[in-house]
């Protein structure tokens, strides 16, 4: 009887300690799963910023005027086209109240429906030399309507009035 009772406190202590440690382990493991959700927030901020910039570049400054974005797309990959669109897009993205937000990078693509009816995507700006494809990028898009084929585009692009999709890959270097 005495021997039995002699071990009880130790047993209860071990049991209590095990319960607490197990709980703590479960708590830590469950919450640490959710912290991965944090990465969504920078994505959301970047996507919102990119969408805003494209939308504002597509808003003409004067009533009835042509928007900046349409002007760039009309030039295709030529001078005043894709590369300038990329520069202007990044300039707008980097703008803030203090120093510019310099480590943003972007690459511009254009999707169009070809003569054959399939959808083709082509690079509108010159490729970013540091782009590896492993970056955590967001893709923002904007519809543009053209009355004719932009300059310096692949041969399978149609020449009649058409809607094309400007796609911008945006990432933080």
């Amino acid at each position: 009887m005495v021997n039995n009772a002699g071990q009880l406190y130790t047993m209860e202590g071990v049991a209590a300690g095990l319960i607490m440690l197990l709980t703590a382990y479960i708590v830590v493991s469950t919450t640490s799963i959710y912290t991965t959700g944090d990465t969504h927030i920078p994505d959301m901020q970047l996507e919102q910023l990119g969408s805003d910039v494209l939308a504002m570049m597509d808003t003409p400054d004067i009533d009835g005027g042509t928007s900046e974005l349409v002007g760039f797309v009309k030039k295709g990959t030529g001078i005043g086209g894709g590369n300038d669109l990329q520069d202007e897009f990044l300039a707008n993205c980097k703008m803030r109240s203090g120093d510019p937000d310099d480590n943003l990078r972007a690459q511009v693509y254009l999707s169009y429906r070809t003569l054959g009816g399939s959808v083709n995507t082509t690079l509108l700006s010159s490729p970013d030399p540091w782009f590896t494809g492993r970056e955590n990028t967001v893709r923002v898009t904007r519809w543009v309507q053209l009355s004719q084929q932009p300059g310096d585009m692949p041969g399978d692009m149609r020449t009649d009035p058409q809607a094309v999709l400007v796609e911008v890959l945006l990432w933080r270097a």
Binding site: A5, G6, Q7, L8, Y9, T10, M11, E12, G13, V14, A16, G17, L18, M20, L21
Partner: peptide, 13 residues
């Protein structure tokens, strides 16, 4: 016995 049990408990806590 009590000391041993309580120590284990406190350590875990």
């Amino acid at each position: 016995d009590f000391l041993a049990g309580f120590t284990i408990f406190m350590l875990a806590l």
